[in-house]
Design a protein around this nucleic acid. Structure first.
Lengths: 198, 198
DNA sequence: CTGGTCATGTAACCCGTTACATGATTTC
DNA sequence: GAAATCATGTAACGGGTTACATGACCAG
């Protein structure tokens, strides 16, 4: 049960959108975060998030308040409570589980000597281009977060560097992703169609 | 249900240990592979692997044969069948699910502005040193796989490059992992203990 | 004589995924 | 007029994790 901590951490950012300081963040906004930035270190579907928010609220780790909208469906904004912060602190102090990954494309590359590489090459190049797009996106997010300061300066004096540091890693991973995809595609292309000797 | 494909791909290597060509690989050996190289792209516990092997055997995608040992417990070696290869081929041709990651440490870094960073810094440095060890391990594995050839040469003419290419990615990821860990630890250290203003 | 390696599983429970359900508003 | 965005859930099923169970051999 560690999704809760990912949710709490993501909720801290609390980009309520408009002016209202740290008003919180809706399930929907949270789901978007889990599709972009948070996806670098945690994956979860919207349904899971709604369910987890409900559980967290019942346990008092987040507090939700209903916001009535006229032109849009009503929504609920959640913020992390004191108890939620304590939970996060305890989690941070405890030992971490080893990170884990699941990647279809790498499974396919692992088997590349025994199967037709045509579709694989396509997928690798597709992934490289997606990775490139994400690289640019992360670059923009970073620039936005640090504002006018340069990186060193921001990391010394900025007041919310957590998301910046995770985004930095996301950027590095996507760059890596792109390079690897292109490299492997090139290698497989150069070898040509499968030689079915065995 | 994609663990099956990871298992099939891992089984292709078939490092039966001693001389016997491509004799296959036991559940136990498979579990070790999932702890080292395969962990770069798939995570699974031994129990899952034993269960999956049983299922794959019942479906005819792998074939197991019992090997009686005197000085060690008996074991079963599995190899991928023709049907298994076909399954892998179909999987490779089909679209890939987006890769996904779950990383406790990154969740903690995301929340770094709101919690005590002491234990976090320790964990980051610990991870960096583990990553360094894995970097060296992967370096050795790569040298072993390519034998006397240099990398370019091996990737052009070697006869099993799949595991090499995935290992290459593992190496890059671990390097990245180490650098990030050290960087973040340094940044957090420089900021000193939490200033609990808010 | 303690701890690591080899070797394979079962059972219960919880978490995560897939499928379903709804509906108004804005943009192309 | 179609498609994306905003917005929130429920229900069933299947896969994954945790805990348990066993036991011989080898190295320090």
């Amino acid at each position: 049960m560690a999704l809760r901590h990912a949710v709490l951490a993501a909720l801290l950012v609390g980009d309520g959108g408009d002016s209202g300081g740290n008003s919180g963040c809706s399930g929907y906004q949270l789901a978007k975060a889990f599709d972009i930035g948070v996806a670098n270190f945690w994956h979860a579907l919207p349904q899971q998030l709604y369910a987890e928010l409900a559980k967290l609220e019942k346990e008092g780790l987040v507090a939700g308040r209903r916001v009535v909208q006229e032109t849009r469906p009503n929504k609920r904004l959640f913020r992390v409570t004191e108890a939620g912060l304590a939970e996060l602190a305890a989690f941070t102090a405890a030992p971490s589980k080893p990170s884990f990954v699941r990647d279809d494309l790498m499974v396919k590359v692992q088997a590349a000597d025994s199967v037709d590489t045509g579709p694989l090459i396509e997928q690798l190049e597709e992934r490289a281009s997606v990775a490139e797009a994400r690289t640019e996106l992360f670059g923009k997010l970073l620039r936005k977060m640090r504002g006018e300061l340069d990186e060193e300066e921001f990391l010394r004096r900025g007041d919310r560097i957590g998301p910046y540091l995770t985004c930095l890693r996301g950027l590095a991973l996507e760059r890596e992703n792109r390079e690897w995809g292109l490299r492997v595609a090139a290698v497989l292309r150069a070898r040509g169609p499968v030689r079915a000797e065995r």
